[in-house]
Design a protein around this nucleic acid. Structure first.
Lengths: 204, 204
DNA sequence: TTTCAGATACGCAATCTTGCAGTTGTGCAG
DNA sequence: CTGCACAACTGCAAGATTGCGTATCTGAAA
């Protein structure tokens, strides 16, 4: 990893940790972006070069650019022989619980528990990445015989609906994960299970 | 309708129309809240007493308070013998295409066509009203034999997933409606149709 | 080593959004 | 009619967000 890349990561990490520190100290409401920046020794303008909002700094969300190469790589990694599993895996891999595997994870979970609105950011993220995700899901659909005969417009609609349920299920799964202090395992499987259950019931 | 109520409606309408006027004149990007307020002869602070954001003024969204009485009334009106129809109807009645039946509707549709991001506001709305909507859907579920035996937690999950799909389908339906200059009829039926189709396919 | 295109950080100004407090107008009871 | 409680409007200030222009740094090629 080159110097530039290292420095970038350093700045980002400093901001992520500063965010946790300041929020723990002042509470989310009274934690200002300026304070986080002072803590991390960067300018407020730089903060927004890394995060789209104060919330994102806590959730460690970053709007990485997703070019086609990156997307297809994710799609390839998400392929299983079960469509629902695949879709959920794709969504998770592109924007799943970002805080996973960060330092201060326990602190983050505590913060999220005290400020549930932070989780609604998750839904917002899905919306923001809608186009990318839909494109990815279409790739998954094209590998599924049940959908391959549909028209382009139909596939677009189906992809979008699949994304909607997957996003919803993922949100529930993440919420459970948070409620369990980040200990429950396999968020993806749980999300897929939720989807299957509701579909089954609706078909009775 | 008393004087107070009439004046309130007047202010609101003035703001809605001012928003359209200013955006048509300056383009959404360069239309400022201040300009809209000047056009409507109210203070910028008042603007945010009616709308949560600039976008909402164009979409005519207003975060009406939804108390339990109001909610159950909506639920009652949405009841049909098809659960999916009911859910969609409920979501539409609580936050469907708000611009419907407003003056300058054609202008609004043009604006939305030119600024597709306005529609993502629709998803944001659903997120914001999530709790209310889920509560309403649970009322619908409790009237459905397929779900009545589920535990409270399960019903919550199922309601949330139903909301996710319905929201997604509604979004697609509204998008089609916009693309068709607001002429296509029965957005609700279209949304329900989309949901049924994808469920059917997933069950093959 | 020199050079240069692109990335990163930053300052600044314009907006948007929200909380708070003060003013004015409306509905209503006495 | 009078007075009160409340709703709507407003000004103000703090804080969040974004666009744009500038300066500095990094990677890599010449």
């Amino acid at each position: 990893m080159g110097l530039r890349e290292r420095k970038r990561l350093e700045t980002r990490t400093a901001l992520e940790e500063a965010a946790v520190t300041v929020v723990l100290r002042d509470g989310f409401e009274h934690a200002t972006v300026d304070a986080m920046c002072a803590e991390a020794n960067v300018s407020p303008r730089t903060f927004f070069n890394y995060f789209e909002s104060k919330e994102d700094a806590i959730l460690c969300v970053y709007d990485e650019k997703i070019d086609d190469a990156r997307l297809t790589a994710h799609v390839r990694n998400s392929l299983t022989n079960d469509l629902i599993e695949s879709v959920v895996a794709l969504v998770v891999s592109l924007m799943g619980p970002a805080a996973t595997g960060r330092s201060h994870q326990k602190s983050r979970i505590e913060i999220i528990k005290k400020n549930p609105h932070l989780l609604s950011r998750h839904a917002a993220q899905i919306t923001r990445m809608n186009e990318h995700l839909v494109k990815g899901i279409r790739l998954l659909l094209s590998a599924d015989s049940r959908f391959s005969s549909d028209s382009a417009a139909e596939q677009e609609e189906e992809a979008e609906l699949l994304l909607a349920v997957s996003g919803g299920a993922l949100r529930i799964a993440v919420r459970e994960w948070i409620a369990d202090d980040g200990n429950s395992d396999n968020i993806q499987a749980r999300a897929a299970e939720l989807i299957r259950k509701v579909i089954t019931t609706l078909n009775e």
